[in-house]
Amino acid sequence: MRILFLGDVVGNLGVDMVDQYLPKLKHDFKPQVTIVNGENSTPVGRGISYKIYKQLMNDGADVITLGNHAWNNEEIYDFIDDSKNLVRPLNYPGKDVPGSGYTVINVNGKKLAVINLQGRIFIDPIDDPFQKIDELLNKIEKEVDYVFVDFHAETTSEKKAMGLFLTGRASAVVGTHTHVQTNDNQILNNQTAYITDVGMCGPFNSVLGMKYDSIIHRFLTQRPTRFEVQNEGDQILSGCLIDLRDDGTARSIKTILIDPSHPYNR
């Protein structure tokens, strides 16, 4: 099985990059499953709207994952329960959390579980992602053929620990949230595809998708500053391509990067 995953879609420029390049990527690489993290995809860079959810699906996404901004656009409460391929972090506390932390899709007779987790270091302190994923896999791992985990977390250490924790149980553990593609794509113990962060899709001349002037001002003055999405200029698309064996283990993980210095020439 081949999985194409695109990192955090940020603002209008991120949505535009997915619209422009996802059909090309699917045509050229022919993934069986395409997953996109859409938690920053509104024009203000926080949350997702129904219109953008439908657009990303129409562009070719099979599943859309979220993260710590899952609830920032209140419109999500109107459609998440009916959107089975929209997955919010599994480890939100409480018994009546809207939506689901995972979905299972059928791919050519095989079942793929797509799971979204959120870290707890330097981010909202929600329930333990290690305990929650362990409980879920104990419940479903005999019923599915492949397990893909989008771990939306801040620190390298927490992400790498999750990758090692799930080695042999998950087919892939892919990090999101920090918006900068890392250079550590690897196969853990010849079993689990891993990368600390796949990067983002959105404005290139920015600080993690935000206008850089206000952020530089914040660093210079240490005074509160309103961060705004950069909605014009050059763009970037970051992702990865993962090939899985029939036994559920990973064969390879390769990064995808499109920006002014890395034009798409395939």
Results as ranks from 00 to 15, higher is better:
residue 23 P to T: 12
residue 247 D to C: 12
residue 85 N to T: 14
residue 89 P to C: 13
residue 50 Y to K: 14
residue 103 T to Q: 01
residue 208 L to M: 15
residue 207 V to C: 08
residue 235 Q to H: 09
residue 150 D to S: 07
residue 158 E to T: 12
residue 202 G to T: 11
residue 99 G to C: 09
residue 217 H to Y: 11
residue 228 E to A: 14
residue 85 N to D: 15
residue 233 G to R: 04
residue 30 K to A: 05
residue 179 H to I: 13
residue 121 I to N: 10
residue 131 Q to G: 03
residue 211 K to R: 13
residue 199 G to N: 11
residue 87 V to L: 07
residue 20 Q to N: 13
residue 152 H to W: 03
residue 224 P to F: 10
residue 188 L to M: 02
residue 193 A to G: 15
residue 167 T to N: 04
residue 250 A to H: 10
residue 152 H to M: 02
residue 171 S to D: 05
residue 18 V to E: 04
residue 114 V to C: 13
residue 193 A to P: 05
residue 252 S to C: 10
residue 104 V to Y: 09
residue 171 S to C: 10
residue 164 L to A: 06
residue 176 T to S: 11
residue 253 I to A: 02
residue 261 S to Y: 09
residue 91 N to H: 10
residue 249 T to Q: 08
residue 113 A to V: 09
residue 94 G to E: 01
residue 142 K to W: 01
residue 179 H to C: 04
residue 38 G to P: 08
residue 60 G to P: 12
residue 125 P to Q: 12
residue 116 N to D: 13
residue 28 D to A: 14
residue 106 N to A: 14
residue 257 L to T: 14
residue 47 G to Y: 09
residue 16 D to G: 05
residue 209 G to P: 07
residue 215 I to S: 04
residue 93 P to Q: 00
residue 168 G to R: 09
residue 182 T to E: 04
residue 36 V to Y: 03
residue 195 I to C: 08
residue 90 L to D: 02
residue 169 R to I: 00
residue 61 A to Q: 06
residue 204 F to D: 01
residue 245 R to K: 15
residue 89 P to G: 11
residue 263 P to F: 11
residue 26 K to L: 03
residue 138 N to H: 11
residue 167 T to G: 06
residue 44 V to G: 05
residue 77 Y to M: 08
residue 102 Y to E: 03
residue 197 D to A: 02
residue 127 D to F: 15
residue 172 A to S: 10
residue 137 L to H: 12
residue 146 Y to K: 07
residue 232 E to P: 00
residue 62 D to I: 08
residue 80 I to F: 03
residue 213 D to I: 13
residue 165 F to M: 05
residue 212 Y to W: 14
residue 6 L to S: 02
residue 195 I to P: 01
residue 199 G to Q: 08
residue 79 F to C: 03
residue 182 T to C: 05
residue 38 G to R: 09
residue 110 K to T: 04
residue 204 F to R: 05
residue 48 I to D: 02
residue 166 L to V: 10
residue 140 I to G: 01
residue 59 D to G: 10
residue 236 I to F: 06
residue 201 C to Q: 07
residue 142 K to S: 13
residue 56 L to Q: 03
residue 126 I to F: 13
residue 252 S to Y: 05
